[in-house]
């Protein structure tokens, strides 16, 4: 994955010319617009939206009220579960990413059933690494915090700060 042969590089350049601006913008770094944590029964326990400025200076922001986020989280939880059930092959872990015209969604489900979901603007993102770091933050600052109740909404300032750090490290890439 990390090494590109010259031949592949040429092929890519041709592709990019053919697809024009669309492909060019897809090469720009993606920005995280929101982070969600969904517990094992489909309840939303953490949600935070971020204003993301893309390469062209446009601001992307997610505007959802609290009820909408709860509803969407539980819908996503069900979709994820259905995808696992209907998968024709064994060992399916559910939906890991959804690519849309205007944004991408990435999901990571831990062994415990807790899901970390993030949405990004179109572009390249190390989704696996970022979700992993977010999950580590959840483990460290929520689960190891004596005042956090399992499966309940996360209200820990250290977790907030760490998530902000993770998002900043992605959103401030050039």
């Amino acid at each position: 994955m990390s090494t590109t042969t010259p031949v592949a590089g040429v092929a890519h350049a041709v592709d990019a010319r053919a697809l024009g601006a669309c492909a060019a913008s897809a090469m720009a770094p993606g920005r995280i617009t929101s982070v969600w944590v969904i517990n094992k029964s489909g309840g939303l326990i953490y949600h935070r939206a971020f204003d993301a400025v893309d390469g062209r200076g446009e601001t992307h922001a997610m505007r959802l009220d609290a009820n909408a986020t709860l509803r969407l989280a539980s819908v996503w939880h069900s979709m994820h579960a259905i995808a696992r059930k209907v998968s024709p092959t064994r060992g399916c872990v559910g939906i890991e990413s959804v690519e849309c015209d205007t944004f991408d969604l990435y999901c990571f489900q831990a062994e415990t059933g807790t899901k970390i979901v993030m949405t990004t603007t179109k572009g390249t993102v190390d989704a696996r690494g970022t979700l992993r770091r977010a999950h580590q933050a959840f483990y460290a600052y929520a689960l190891q915090n004596p005042f956090y109740e399992m499966e309940m909404p996360v209200r820990c300032e250290l977790f907030d700060a760490e998530i902000a750090n993770v998002v900043r490290s992605v959103n401030e890439r050039t």
Partner: peptide
Amino acid sequence: RFVSVPKDL
């Protein structure tokens, strides 16, 4: 290191 004290405490 990992402790966030809630406001009521």
